[in-house]
Design a protein around this nucleic acid. Structure first.
Length: 1006
RNA sequence: ACGGACGUGGCGGAAUUGGUAGACGCGCCAGACUUAGGAUCUGGUACCGCAAGGUGUGGGGGUUCGAGUCCCCCCGUCCGUACCA
């Protein structure tokens, strides 16, 4: 006869293991494309499966999105909540270079480890939809999209991408007019000449293909790239930090080489405009705006003999203040305009500037350098001679790589002019050009010429109009955004499906995709400096050589959200029906570090696929939430190493300022490492009569696994620490010291060794990594989930403090106990469906119990909607405390709470739900608590009869008075004034004013 | 330098529309139970003060009957970008 489990304890391990299995068995999280139900798409940025595994910071966003996904399922949505791996990447390749292991193998192992860790946390991911970017079945479609980009051009008239065939048809009928070229090519060294339709038809195949390169959205061109000699590869701008590679920290130099690029610049304006419609954080949107860097101005051509120099300026109004031009050292025209007399000097300067790292050039803002080319250009308006200089303050990659220098209106030009003694013309009224340039945009133009007397904005308009009239320039919008370098001299990436015939790139036929990554013997560049793929045998297509660079890390992640919709499709990247059904991502959760990388390319590819008619929307994610970082709390102790020969001393003697001393026997070799407890730091006086102060002490991080509440467990350290010098150290505290695993006590106190907590990044090197597996082992996944949410707002960074987790664990136990501490009924109820019943009653709830229930339903529902999970957790705690105090064991109250807790703590909720409704689980197709509708809150239970008014005098609360809420303002006022305590505070005087805000406050102004 | 976010007890944080600042949790203090506790339960805990009372949301000013919340100035922290023409 089963007994009622009145005092059954909450056993997280048994419960969680049971449901992990059961959910798999029941396919609880399998999602079908079911158009009969409304959809909701919750996406997490998928991880790169690194060898280190997950720490507690990684799942933060996944937990938040999982709560939303589960909540939406309770609300009747068909929820797509998938997970996969961004599995191409550098660490696996570097590991492969070191060990010779195939990156696919280590990637596989790491992914399996991630999967194990993720499974333990109880996510509702539909793993049947898992994608991996390194899986040929996935990258087949990454390659396919690349081919579509190759096969497209950006039509500025339609303001969208179109098939290259449309362009060819245009060229055949109309040729190429000047405007096309200038709009479609951003880089200074690319210039598409004008040609007629007849000329186009006369071009040979090679010439035609060369011309088309200038239009394709994926194109091969000579481009300035960040070349990293140490890695033997080219890096994207955002992979270079401070002149060194982001990974590895190797120096990077600028170099010109043939390079596959994607013409993201064609989308600059649309990427900018699209931001306004997105429910993304302002900081991310601002970061993208700055990255795109739109500026309005003019393109001005300064004639040089038969040739000309083109500059971009945002201040064409200052044209009459131009006294020289400055070219970037890398500018292609530098050589052409250098006179023989100046050649040696210019070449020396250019070489020096080129060899200077980006970092040096950035750091050296104070020092002005440059050289005169010996040539002059003509001012387009005045015809005056304008000397042409070269200066490294001008960047090759921005604008045209050349500036018109207006020392009166630009501080950098001013410093350059001052340094080289060039004339400075005042361009604005009231400018003191002896002291500095006037960059004000509210000024009035004062330089001689037709702009004199105009305000800056009017002068800009006029200058542009005059330039256009003369054919010397035109209005122009410039973007900081550069085309994205798309080739990598690496192995572990998607092969670019291109082959070369006569050095001209041609696409691999779609039916021959995927172009599978070949096996190679070594994962390094070849001896001749070619990419690793050049090592592959028969790396050719129909007898022609294949491209040997591979795609960058961001290729797969730019479109992966579409593949989840239909991950097994062999005919298409996803079926039209699946795309139409799932549509945009409704909620995207991930780190803000992807602000200008992934999140920009993600939008770019979506817009492109939209333009070509493959998908019906042109933004990938409607709402984006950036989870904050979870920082680690490192635990530092002070360390000192003292040494001498073993003969000189046999004991070490430490004296404290108080006069107390400790003596420790020396180790056989005479050296010892000493660690001091925090409270000793200021009281240390000397070691063997040598003064010891804080300056000799070095902070050393202790492994946080050995620290509890800033109290170090020294015996564990001496047994288990991975660092021998730490293990063998002597640890001093006020109470005693530890040496060679022995504790020696000075005082009859509890042994206590104190560490100093410091909040910083969670990383292995700081010994502050907390592994979710350890937490789950001790407290369970539900506690982990709740605690991660309870720490604070999802978007905020906050330190992980394992000490606090007890609170949420206690809460779950209390919640569990609510269901198990009811008075046992006189006749034991037999278990049904193998589940013991709970000691609950079917009695009608009291008003107070209903109030607690519905206040919780309301709060939790609203909190999930605005993703304020920390406050919903506290509401659960409040409800549990209150119901516990009420000794509530009524099914009608407790049952709905199980459902609303389920998104947060799915295992315990499922277990309780099964105990409440064992019969439902008899069916194998029952999806458990997740299938239950979200309980609606009923406002009637929250209506109070009376309100306890705070009565304030001049805004300061003095007392509280309770009145029925039915009372009118006037009645409340009268009642308040009639109150004896209020009267005594008024001291007989009449109040100046009484403010009554119903159900809020009463304020008496005296 | 510019752009963004933020600043509340010993700590993480709450206060959703201008209306009782400090919810909830950690920690700490006291007590109960216990052979014991790093278990559990109860109570307390912003600061100053014996108290009455006063002070208080980075600092200064303002709007308002009333400001953590709105406005202006300043200080500080974190993140991003940067000779951007």
């Amino acid at each position: 006869m089963p007994t009622i489990s009145a005092n059954m304890a909450y056993e997280h391990k048994a419960i969680e293991t049971k449901w992990r299995k059961e959910w798999v068995k029941r396919s609880t999280y399998r999602v079908a494309n079911d158009p009969s139900k409304p959809k909701y798409y919750v996406l997490d940025m998928f991880p790169y499966p690194s060898g280190a595994g997950l720490h507690v910071g990684h799942p933060l966003g996944y937990i938040a999105s999982d709560i939303v996904a589960r909540y939406k399922r309770h609300q009747g949505f068909n929820v797509l909540h998938p997970m996969g791996y961004d599995s191409f990447g550098l660490p696996a390749e570097q590991y492969a270079i070191q060990t010779g292991q195939h990156p696919a193998k280590t990637t596989e192992q790491n992914a399996a480890r991630y999967r194990e860790q993720l499974d333990r946390i109880g996510f509702s991911f539909d793993w049947s939809r898992e994608v991996r970017t390194s899986d040929p079945a996935f990258y087949e479609w990454t390659q396919w999209i690349f081919l579509q980009l190759f096969d497209s051009w950006y039509d500025p008239r339609a303001d969208k991408a179109r098939p290259i065939a449309d362009l060819i048809a245009r060229l055949e009928s109309q040729g190429c007019q000047g405007q096309d070229a200038s709009i479609l090519t951003g880089d200074i060294e690319e210039f598409v000449g004008e040609f007629t339709a007849e000329e186009w038809k006369a071009f040979d195949e090679r010439t035609r293909q060369m011309v088309l390169q200038h239009f394709r959205l994926a194109y091969l061109s000579e481009a300035w790239v960040n070349w990293c000699p140490a890695l033997g590869t080219v890096l994207a701008n955002d992979e270079v930090k401070d002149g060194v590679s982001e990974r590895g920290g190797h120096p990077v130099e600028r170099k010109r080489m043939p390079q596959w690029s994607l013409r993201i610049t064609a989308y600059a304006q649309r990427l900018l405009d699209g931001l306004d419609q997105l429910d993304w954080s302002e900081s991310i949107k601002e970061a993208q705006r700055n990255w795109i860097g739109r500026s309005e101005g003019a393109l001005v051509r300064f004639p040089v003999g038969e040739d000309f120099i083109e500059v971009f300026t945002t201040r064409p109004d200052t044209l009459f203040g131009v006294t020289f031009l400055t070219l970037a050292p890398e500018h292609v025209l530098v050589g052409k305009f250098t006179t023989e007399e100046q050649r040696a000097a210019v070449e020396a300067y250019v070489n020096k500037a080129k060899n200077r790292s980006e970092r040096e050039r950035q750091a050296d803002v104070e020092h002005v350098s440059g050289v005169f080319t010996g040539s002059c250009a003509k001012h387009p308006f005045t015809g005056a001679d304008i000397p042409i200089w070269v200066g490294d303050y001008v960047l090759a990659g921005y604008g045209t790589g050349a500036v018109m220098a207006v020392p009166g209106g630009d501080q950098r030009d001013w410093r350059f002019a001052k340094h080289f003694g060039m004339p400075i013309i005042a361009v604005t009224e009231g400018a003191d050009i002896e002291k500095e340039a006037d960059e004000s945009k509210e000024a009035t133009i004062s330089s001689e010429g037709f702009l004199k007397g105009l305000k800056v904005p009017a002068a800009i308009q006029r200058a542009i109009a005059e330039l256009e009239k003369l054919g010397a320039g035109e209005g122009r919008v410039n973007y900081r955004l550069r085309d994205a370098a798309f080739g990598r001299q690496r192995y572990w990436g998607e092969p670019i499906p291109i082959y070369y015939k006569d050095d001209i790139p041609y696409p691999v036929a779609e039916q021959d995709l995927p172009l599978v990554l070949p096996e190679i013997d070594k994962y390094q560049p070849t001896e001749t400096g070619e990419p690793p793929l050049a090592r592959a045998k028969d790396w050719s297509y129909e007898g022609y050589p294949l491209e040997t660079t591979t795609m960058p890390g961001w290729a797969g992640s730019s479109w992966y959200f579409l593949r989840y919709m239909d991950p097994k499709n062999k005919e298409r990247f996803a079926s039209q029906e699946a795309i139409d059904y799932w549509g945009q991502v409704d909620l995207y959760v991930g780190g803000s570090e992807h602000a200008t990388g992934h999140l920009l390319y993600f939008r770019f590819w979506t817009k492109f696929l939209h333009d070509r008619g493959w998908i019906p929307f042109d933004e990938p994610a409607k709402k984006l939430v950036n989870q904050g970082m979870i920082q680690g709390v490192s635990q530092y102790t002070a360390f000192a190493s003292f040494g001498g020969s073993p003969e000189s001393e046999f004991t070490d003697r430490f004296v404290l300022k108080t006069g107390e001393f400790f003596e420790v026997p020396r180790r056989w070799d005479g050296f010892r490492q000493y660690f001091f407890s925090l409270e000793l730091l200021d009281s240390l006086d000397s070691w063997n009569s040598v003064a010891v102060g804080p300056e000799q002490l070095v902070p050393v991080a202790m492994d946080v696994r050995f620290v509890d509440n800033s109290c170090l467990d020294v015996s564990k350290v001496q047994l288990k620490d991975t660092r021998p010098e730490v293990r063998d150290g002597v640890f001093f505290a006020t109470s005693g010291y530890w040496v060679d695993g022995q504790y020696h006590e000075f005082q009859k106190e509890a042994r206590h060794f104190e560490t100093r907590p410091v909040v910083e990044k969670m990383s292995k090197s700081k010994f502050n990594v907390v592994n979710p597996d350890d937490i789950i082992e001790r407290y369970g996944a539900d506690t982990l989930r709740l605690y991660e949410m309870f720490l604070g707002p999802i978007e905020q960074s906050k330190p992980w403090d394992t000490n606090g987790i007890e609170g949420t664990y206690r809460f779950l136990r209390k919640f569990w106990n609510l269901f198990h501490t009811g008075s046992p009924s006189e006749t034991p109820v037999p278990s049904t469906h193998g589940v013991d019943p709970l000691p609950l009653t079917n009695d009608a709830p009291t008003k107070e119990e209903l109030r607690v229930l519905h206040a919780t339903l309301k709060k939790v529902t609203e909190d999930i909607e605005r993703m304020s999970f920390n406050t919903s957790v506290s509401q659960f705690m409040i409800a549990t405390n209150e119901l516990g105090a009420l000794k509530c064991n009524k099914r009608a109250v407790l049952e709905p709470l199980v459902i609303v807790l389920a998104p947060f703590a799915p295992h315990i909720a499922e277990e309780l739900w099964q105990k409440l409704n064992p019969e439902k689980y008899a069916s194998d197709t029952y999806k458990g608590v997740l299938a239950e509708p979200w309980p609606a809150f009923d406002p009637q239970y929250l209506v109070e009869d009376s309100f306890n008014y705070p009565i304030s005098f001049n805004g300061k609360t003095r007392l509280q008075l309770e009145f029925p809420i039915a009372l009118s303002k006037e009645e409340v006022e009268a009642a308040v004034l009639a109150n004896p305590e209020v009267q005594s505070r008024l001291e007989g005087k009449a109040p100046k004013k009484v403010i009554v805000v119903p159900r809020r406050i009463v304020n008496i102004v005296v």
